[in-house]
Design a protein around this nucleic acid. Structure first.
Lengths: 147, 147
DNA sequence: ATACCTGCAAAGTCTTTGCAATCAA
DNA sequence: TTGATTGCAAAGACTTTGCAGGTAT
């Protein structure tokens, strides 16, 4: 599948150029490690959920030696600038989603798989009044399924 | 506030007897550590969210030396028999809720506080078709707020 | 009596951090 | 050149486990 769209590069089929453009658009320096990880993260829209370990493996298999610590730090950085969204699946698994738009997921407890839900379930919900002196930061929702 | 109701003990105001009855009803042996933890967990309905660390501190302050490992194991056991519900708040915090009925929570990212939502938000939701060959195991939902 | 439970310390998992070496602008 | 970034190993936070001794029925 085609990479995530971006208007900042002239040739969207060139992954490296595309990655560099995305990074600069986000105000980040386009270093070697970041370009590789950006490419691996955003190249295939159909594969938008990943973990630090999975991304590290992908980079390794692609022949790029990026340390696991850098993968963790980069995922955290990308999340902080809005390039990624973090999804805590349970107490020990954190996924990162390259689709930062409002949507929810199925989580398959057997396979550990995260699957997008097409309908936005939250559109139907009327949120209750928030606790005093607080503001809404978001809604985390996971529909748990099992084989 | 009054302890959680239970029809298996003759005197609901006696915490220890109440705890023993709850445990036996759940098919668990009423050991010393479990009775203490049950009492601390279910005595005050208004204080229904806890973590392993908090429960350990409570027991310690109450003069009961229950090891942290036993607290962890007991919380896990109680969850497995349906006495508690586990709530993963983010990748590093697991809360346990003594209210196992369907309800959702606010999570205050500043204070780490978990607050019950009175309305059942999921009542309004029509779940989409599940992925093939899977069955619904539950819906995790957290409304994130911040001061 | 016997299977179960507990405490302790050790091990495990996942993530972050300190610091020297390296890199991008 | 110079501050930002990276890799490595060590440290951290949280949780589970192995095993010897103690407990409930």
């Amino acid at each position: 599948m085609a990479p995530k769209e971006c208007n900042a590069c002239s040739d969207p089929t060139n992954n490296t150029e595309h990655a560099i453009a995305m990074l600069e658009l986000a105000g980040l320096r386009a270093t070697g490690a970041r370009v590789i990880l950006t490419t691996l993260l955003f190249d295939d829209i159909s594969d938008c959920h990943t973990t630090a370990e999975i991304l590290y493996e992908k980079a390794f298999k692609a022949g790029s030696r990026v340390s696991l610590a850098t993968v963790y730090n980069t995922l955290r950085l990308f999340t902080s600038v809005g390039l990624l969204r973090q999804i805590s699946v349970n107490s020990t698994q954190v996924y990162f989603d390259t689709d930062t738009s409002e949507h929810q997921h199925f989580y398959n407890e057997n396979t550990g798989e995260l699957i997008n839900i097409k309908e936005n379930l939250l559109a139907e919900i009327i949120l209750p009044e928030l606790p005093e002196c607080t503001r809404l930061m978001g809604v985390d929702m996971l529909v748990l399924v099992s084989n």
